[in-house]
Computed example of a mutant assay.
Amino acid sequence: MPLYFLHIRNGDKLEIDPDGMELPDQDAALIEALKVARELLDEVADLGRDAVIEIADGTGETVLTVPFSDAVRPH
């Protein structure tokens, strides 16, 4: 399975995912990024409104960018 990294960009800070995870495809990586974003929204108070998860493939190339706002569930 391909390796994907979920890096978190919050303003000018970039938190690198050092390990990555094996996922079947980009759709699975997107689902995982949304799950991680939801968890972080509940746990981290200082996420900026422009925070994103940058999904990179095994070569390090960013293949998707997921805004944290996409993870907000309507109430």
Score class of each variant (00 low, 15 high):
Asp70Cys: 06
Glu32Met: 07
Ile8Val: 15
Val52Ser: 02
Leu30Asp: 12
Glu22Ser: 12
Thr65Ser: 15
Pro24Val: 09
His75Thr: 14
Gln26Trp: 04
Asp25Pro: 07
Phe5Lys: 00
Gly60Phe: 05
Gly60Tyr: 06
Ala56Leu: 09
Leu41Ile: 15
Glu22Thr: 12
Leu34Pro: 03
Glu39Ala: 11
Val52Lys: 00
Asn10Tyr: 02
Met1Pro: 07
Asp27Thr: 13
Asp17Met: 12
Arg49Gln: 14
Ile8Phe: 00
Val36Trp: 00
Lys13Glu: 13
Gly20Asn: 06
Met1Asp: 11
Ile55Phe: 04
Ala56His: 05
Glu22Ile: 07
Ala56Thr: 08
Ala51Val: 07
Asp25Ala: 10
Gly11Met: 10
Gly60Leu: 05
Ile53Ala: 04
Pro24Ile: 10
Ile31Thr: 10
Thr59Ala: 14
Asp19His: 14
Leu64Ser: 09
Thr59Gln: 12
Ala29Tyr: 00
Ala45Met: 08
Glu15Ala: 13
Ala33Trp: 00
Met1Lys: 09
Glu32Gly: 01
His7Ile: 06
Ile8Gly: 01
Pro2Thr: 05
Glu39Gln: 12
Ile55Tyr: 00
Asp50Ile: 07
Arg38Thr: 09
Ile53His: 01
Gly48Cys: 13
Glu32Cys: 05
Pro74Ala: 11
Ala29Phe: 02
Gly20His: 04
Ala29His: 02
Arg9Phe: 05
Glu15Gly: 09
Arg38Met: 14
Leu6Cys: 05
Asp27Tyr: 13
Val63Gly: 03
Asp25Gly: 08
Glu15Thr: 15
His75Gln: 11
Ala33Arg: 00
Leu3Ala: 12
Ile16Ser: 08
Thr65Leu: 07
Gly20Ala: 07
Ala45Trp: 06
Val36His: 00
Thr62Gly: 02
Leu41Pro: 02
Met21Lys: 12
Leu23Cys: 11
Asp46Pro: 05
Gly11Phe: 06
